[in-house]
Structures are given as structure tokens and as C-alpha cells.
Computed example of a mutant assay.
Amino acid sequence: MKPIQDIYPHLTTPRNVVITTHQKPDADAMGSSLAMYHFLTALGHSVTVVSPTNWAKWLDWMPGSAKVIDYELQRDRGEAALQQAQWVFCLDFNVLVRTKHMANTLRQGAYDRILIDHHQQPEVPLFTWGISDTAKSSTCEMVYDFIVGGGYGDRITPAIADCLYAGVMTDTGSFRFPSASASVHRMVADLKDRGLQHTLVHENIYDNFLENRLRFIGHILLHRMDLFYEYNTALISIPKKDLLRFEIKTGDTEGLVNWPLSIQGIKLAALVIDRDEERKWSFRSKGDFDVNTFARNYFEGGGHFNAAGGRSSDSLDGTVQRFLEAMKENALQLQ
């Protein structure tokens, strides 16, 4: 994989470009994809954003979201875009399995794949150009660096600024996580100078839900959260019947795993949701407990040191039992 900077001389030649990200894209994935879409379009490229799956409706405010192709629902359109592509930008993921049903097509394509990502253990041989930097707060921060590093800072429009801010804001927990470095705050200041309306972004991200989600959260915190103070751990386990009862849609559980971290003494928060095909895990931690390693060792997952995800094909009860065993095995690290 050649350094991402080596692509700069090629940016002035228009190409057919596809931008894609991981399944069920969050604000960082969608924000980085749409920011890159607006940037490359302004340079004269023919650009299509293809998401492997649907996304949360509260991301539909992002400029350009209406043009994103949902590969699961519009496979013919997605395949057509990929067949014509000369470049495929892969943002906010670094292993093709995270694109679900798109993985085989992405692996077999003759186009150049370009990686911009901040997760651990990338499939480096797959990419022609790229950058993988786990120290970065978000892929949106990295897209900002890519644009500015190429001398294109003047191309950052208010639409691009809004998309980039949404991703960096959410992936830093509204700037509370250690990844919110000085460079992140300098980036935000620059975006403000370029027209960012940060209050509107906050409202679109955090004040854009239906009543049922708030009632769902209350139900979950009251009935589905268990605390293990001897291990400084909180576990939320959500059965499928709760999702059906409250008519929970994609994105409605976003951020729920962070709630237990507000409890005094809690070092590890875990959330497992009973989905149709598998049980999906989210892990968050404070301090020196490495949930990336935890997720990789026990739940076929990974991510960042303090934020990771995983999966299990076991039943909900079975995967919860597995978590409890893993929690006890890591008791010393959780003290």
C-alpha cells in the first residue's frame, strides 16, 4: 500500500469513483463518505457513494445523503457503479468483511482501492494507496487532513464542514474521549471559520429521534441493565422482543452502550442486542482496559482501545454467559 500522499498528483485527472464504508454506517462513516463525495465532485470526478446497507434516518440531513445507494436494496445500481469505477475509496473500515454482501465484489474488482481508516489491523495488501492511523479520532478527521494536506483547504464548503464535524463530534463522544487531541480542536476552529454551523449539527444528531426511542431507553436502563460492581462492569442485554415492542429502527440504539459509563466506578460497559442473524456486541471502557483485545479474544470483533464491537452466533443467553465468563477471566484488569 503506497502512502496516501502519493495519490495527490492524480487528483486532477477526472475518474469514475465509488466511495464506500462499513455496513450500518454511523455518523463518522456517512460524514466522511459524503465529505469526500463533495470534495471529489468539486474536482471534476464522477462520484457515487454506495453503502453496504441502510443507515439511521437521523443521518438523512447530511448534504448528499439522498444520492447514496443502499447496496442491499439497490444491488443492481451498486454493482453498476462498481463495474464502472476506476477508484474505490474505502472509508472507516479496513477489512472487507465489514461491507457484508459487498465484500466479494470489492475484493474481485480491478479498480484501485484507497484506504482511509483509523481502526487496527488493516488488510494492507488490498489497497493501492492508503493511510491507517489508530491515533486519529475519526475517519472524518483523516478526510479533513487529506483535503488540507493536498492543498485543497479552500475547497471545504459549509456542506463538507457539517459532514466532517458530525463524524469527529460523535466519534470523540462530543470531544470527551482522549482522541480529541489539540489537532481535533484546531480542525473544528478551521471548520467554524469556513462556515460550520455546529449547533445545527448537534441538533440533527442528538435531537432528531421519535418518542418511542426515549421510552425504549428508559425500559432498557430499568429492566435490561445489570451491574457487577466487583468487576466494575455494566452489561445491557436486549432481547429481540424489546426491539419489536418499541419499533426500534437502525440507529435507535446508537450511543446506548455509553450510558453505564456515567455510573461511578464503572470501567467496562457492554451492550448485546439480539438480531435476527446474530448477536451484536458493543464495548466501551475507561482508562487502561483494552476492549479491542477483549472483543477480538472473545467475540470475533475489534476496534479501538476504548471502543470496540463484536458478534456471536450463539443464543442471547449463551453469549451473555460467555461474556460473564470473560469478565471474570479479566477481573484483575478491571480492578
Rank of each mutant, 00 (worst) to 15 (best):
G167C: 10
A159C: 04
D276M: 05
T170C: 08
D290F: 03
D92M: 07
S33I: 05
G301N: 08
D252K: 04
T41C: 12
K241W: 00
A80T: 13
Q74E: 15
T21G: 12
T99F: 13
W87Y: 13
E72Q: 15
F89P: 08
L210C: 07
H219C: 06
T20G: 08
N16F: 09
D190P: 05
D317M: 10
E141G: 09
H185A: 06
L91P: 03
Y229C: 00
Q23D: 11
E247Q: 15
I160D: 05
T21Q: 06
D76R: 11
V143L: 07
T319D: 13
E247W: 01
A159F: 05
H38P: 13
A66C: 02
T233K: 06
E247G: 11
V184N: 03
L334F: 03
G44Q: 14
A161C: 11
A182P: 08
F283H: 01
K240S: 14
V272Q: 04
A295L: 03
Q74R: 14
N204W: 00
E230F: 02
A182D: 14
C90N: 07
T250N: 13
V188N: 04
L244P: 00
A35Y: 08
T99A: 15
K2M: 11
R194D: 11
D76W: 00
D288R: 08
P178Y: 09
K286Y: 11
E247V: 00
P158D: 07
P158E: 04
A29V: 11
V95Y: 00
W58A: 00
Y152R: 07
L91T: 01
A166R: 04
I160C: 05
S132D: 10
F209A: 02
D274Q: 15
D70C: 14
M30T: 09
T105W: 08
R311V: 08
S282P: 02
E277T: 14
E203F: 00
G265E: 10
H223C: 01
L271Y: 00
T21A: 08
L200M: 11
L243T: 08
P52C: 12
T53A: 06
N306K: 09
D92S: 05
L73G: 14
D226Y: 03
L34C: 12
E211P: 06
V143D: 02
E203I: 02
P178R: 11
P260E: 03
K100N: 13
T21Y: 02
G173H: 07
V95S: 12
H101D: 15
L334Q: 09
